[in-house]
Computed example of a mutant assay.
Amino acid sequence: MDTSVLLINAMLYVFLPLWGIAGFADWCCHRATKIEITSGIQESLMHSLMGIQMGIPILMCLLFEVNVLILLICIITWISHEIVAHWDVRYAAPKREISIWEMHAHTYLGSLPLYMLTSILVINWEQFQLLMTLEWAGNMSLLPLENPHGTTSYLPAYLIFMGIVCVFPYIEENLRCLNVYLKKGV
């Protein structure tokens, strides 16, 4: 089997699900420390922002051919995610306990996107070289994938999985925090 296919399968069936599980574990830690009465809506919104920052390149790579444009999106969103992750912990640490379990979840939430980005760069080495040499002409459009990664049912199954383990829990966290924020009348 081709190394690129192996890397894609590792991302689809190992890295992406682990990232979702780590996000759920992180949410459980937030709930246990009563984020709604400690660091509140500000931190909860940072969590949602980080999910969106990583969700965009994941969906782009699952739906479109990877070219210079997609690589730029992946790199920019990864850098911005790292900045917000630093800001998040710096904001939360003095306001609530960050347990050892949450630190472990953060390890996965920070490292898995880097592993996936590195894998994407290796798989699409020619596009990465074009990016680095600023030869972007003809590589800045969104070209839908002819054949989806994984199986034809992978994307819907992954979206359902992420909805259950990340999207709905973090919406619940936002609503819980917003409710407390509004009750305080701040």
Rank of each mutant, 00 (worst) to 15 (best):
I56Y: 02
V167N: 02
V122R: 08
Q127P: 01
S111Q: 15
G110N: 13
T3R: 11
Y170G: 01
T33M: 11
Y154F: 06
D26G: 06
E36K: 00
G150S: 08
R96E: 07
M11D: 13
I8G: 04
L175G: 02
M162R: 00
L145E: 14
S99W: 01
E146T: 15
L45P: 06
K34Y: 09
M54Y: 05
E36M: 04
M46R: 09
P57A: 09
T133S: 05
V167K: 08
I41G: 00
L109K: 08
C74P: 09
L112D: 10
A92S: 12
L131N: 00
F128K: 01
S39E: 10
K183E: 06
H47D: 09
I35S: 00
P113M: 13
G23C: 10
F168M: 14
L143Q: 15
L112A: 08
L18Q: 02
I41N: 01
T77R: 13
H104E: 09
P17F: 06
L182A: 04
V180M: 13
I52M: 15
M50N: 02
C166A: 14
F128C: 10
H86Y: 12
A85K: 05
V84L: 09
A157C: 14
L71K: 01
L121Q: 14
F15I: 02
T33N: 12
L143N: 10
I123Y: 04
F64Q: 07
I37A: 04
D26C: 03
V167H: 12
T118V: 15
G163C: 06
V66L: 07
G163A: 11
E173A: 08
L69W: 05
L72G: 08
I41T: 02
L130R: 14
M132A: 12
G40M: 03
E135G: 13
T3D: 07
L131F: 13
V122E: 11
I98V: 10
E135R: 14
